[in-house]
Each structure stands twice: as structure tokens, then as C-alpha cells.
Computed example of a mutant assay.
Amino acid sequence: MSLPHRLILVRHGETDWNREGRLQGGQDIPLNDLGRRQAAEAAGRLKALEPAYAELDYIGSPMQRARETMDILRRELGLPEGGYVVEDRLRELTFGEWEGFTWRDVRKAEREQAQLRERDKWGFVPPGGESYRMLAERVRPVLEGLRRETVIVSHGGVARAVLALVGAVAPRDAARVDIWQGKLLVVTGDKAEWL
């Protein structure tokens, strides 16, 4: 699918679990101090990229780390508090029973499952979780419903799903793309670039 309008993706700022390398997924972990600074940095990048930032639509994940990022971003831009849509389908990919563990923990406790995931990161479903493929199908209707240029504040998994959906990256590769905190991932048509 090709987006008719530019999309600006912002991954939430860092949490303590990000710093520790823990799988957050569906866990509602708050930002840490660095994460709050990264949210402010993203606002500065948005202001430099798009002088008419007040005219854009804003949509965010309902998860605490994404909402806090959105609130900081909008405050830094001087936009009204709460002036954005919360979209449940933009929640992070869930890792099910693996949440709270590091990848090292998972590899040690469930070696075969971890190896299966490495062979097919896009299609693998962790115990009680979901695959990137499933996440992409959850996110697709959100993208199809965009009517104009939009800022989405969400998660690394959601950004990877978007990259695959628009054709900027092959699905098998999308699951391995680094998604940076504090930067903007700008998607235009089937192209994406970091700012």
C-alpha cells in the first residue's frame, strides 16, 4: 500500500525496560528521564521539519510510554493538551509469556523457540503473543483511514509494521530494522527516511 499523505512516526522515548533490554510489549512501562528528553528532541525535529505542525493530525497509542511521549511532544510544540486521537490498534506488539525477560533470558529458557523466531522473525508467534504479521494486519486499517498528513506516536513494532505495509522494507527485513527513539521516521509513498 502507498500512503497518499506524508506520515511522521515517532517511537516513544526510552523506558527503564528499554535500557535493560527487557521485552515490554503489552506491559505499560513509563518513560525514564532520558525518554522524556528524547520526546522533547522529537518535538524539536518536528518543528524544524514542518513549520505548519499545528495543522497536522496527531494519533497515538494508548500505552503510557507513548501517551507521555505525545504529551511532551505537544507541550514542547505549544499545542493543546489532549488534542490527539488515541488509537488502540497502535499498541505495541505483544510478546506474551516472554514479556519482562531479556532476549538472553529467552534464549536460555526456550532455546528452540528462540531459534524458530530468529529464522522467521516476521511470522513467529511467541507463546501467548503475536507476530509482526499479525501486528501489521492490526495496523493496516489505521493507515487506510488516514486522511491527511499525520504524526503517529507509537512503538518500534508498529513502525516496523508500517515500513512493511508501505513497501519501504520487505516484511522479512522489517522485523530487524532499528527504530530510534527521539528521531522522526518520515514515510512518503513507499519511501522512509530518518530525521
Rank of each mutant, 00 (worst) to 15 (best):
G13M: 02
A114D: 12
L34I: 01
E130D: 03
R74V: 00
L184N: 09
G82I: 08
A40C: 09
Q181S: 13
E137K: 12
E99Q: 15
G100V: 04
R148K: 15
A164Q: 12
G156R: 13
V166E: 06
I72E: 03
Q181M: 12
A42K: 10
F95H: 05
L195H: 13
V125M: 14
R140G: 02
Y53P: 00
V186Y: 05
L49H: 12
P141L: 15
L165F: 10
L163G: 04
R6P: 11
D33Y: 04
M63A: 14
G21M: 07
V10P: 09
V151R: 05
G182Q: 07
V158E: 03
V158A: 01
Q115H: 05
G128C: 05
F101C: 07
L77G: 15
W17A: 03
Y132D: 13
R11G: 05
K47Q: 14
R67L: 14
G35D: 06
S131H: 08
I179Q: 01
Q24K: 06
K191D: 09
G182N: 09
G21F: 08
T150L: 01
F101W: 12
L116E: 15
R147I: 03
R37T: 15
G82M: 09
E87V: 06
A48C: 02
L195D: 08
W103V: 09
L9I: 05
P171R: 07
R147S: 14
V166S: 02
R140E: 11
R75P: 00
T69W: 04
A159E: 10
R65A: 00
L9T: 09
G44K: 15
A39Y: 11
E87R: 14
Q115G: 07
L7P: 00
G145R: 02
A43C: 08
E68V: 08
A52T: 12
Q64M: 08
R91M: 10
R147T: 14
R117N: 01
G123D: 04
P51L: 14
L146S: 11
G25Q: 04
E76W: 02
R89A: 15
G189S: 04
D190A: 01
V10R: 01
F124N: 10
L93F: 06
V86K: 02
F124Y: 15
V106M: 06
M70N: 07
D190E: 12
R111A: 09
R140I: 02
